[in-house]
Amino acid sequence: MSVLKAVFLIIIGLAGGLAVGAGMVAFLTVLGIAPRLAQVTRTAHYIKWYENSIVAGAVFFTWTGLQDMLFHLPKDITLLFGLFAGMFVGLLAAALTEVLNVLPILAKRIKLVDKLIWLLMAMVFGKVLGSLFQWIIFIPFS
């Protein structure tokens, strides 16, 4: 009976993981973050490595996250970790905005095609300051 239960759990776990993993890869593919990074850094040859790094990262953090693992690293490491995490979220946000085609339509509508960089910077500053506000003021004082 317990073997049957175990087999059942394995199947459910595997199925869930497959669905979530496939979904995540599909999402990242649509947004095209890895190709974009490869293009900017002119390292398109290493795109396979980038794929592997996405998979490895997802698996590693799923596993360590589920295991209550503690690494006891110095506090400064979190600075670097935060910067990288933020950059990735920034890439995600930018890619999403781009997929939704907000900026070109807006710039065209109000005839500011030559000031597109301004609109972009408005969003960048908005996100950075909004995020800082949330961590430093909004959450501690609510």
Binding site: R36, V40, G82, G86, M87, G90, A94, V124, L132, W135
Partner: peptide
């Protein structure tokens, strides 16, 4: 309040967006 993590995270968002749009 893990601000050590969160402040660079916030700045990173800006860097990431600029990086994407080059």
């Amino acid at each position: 309040y893990p601000l050590w993590l969160q402040i660079p995270y916030s700045l990173g968002i800006g860097v990431g967006m600029i990086l994407f749009f080059n």
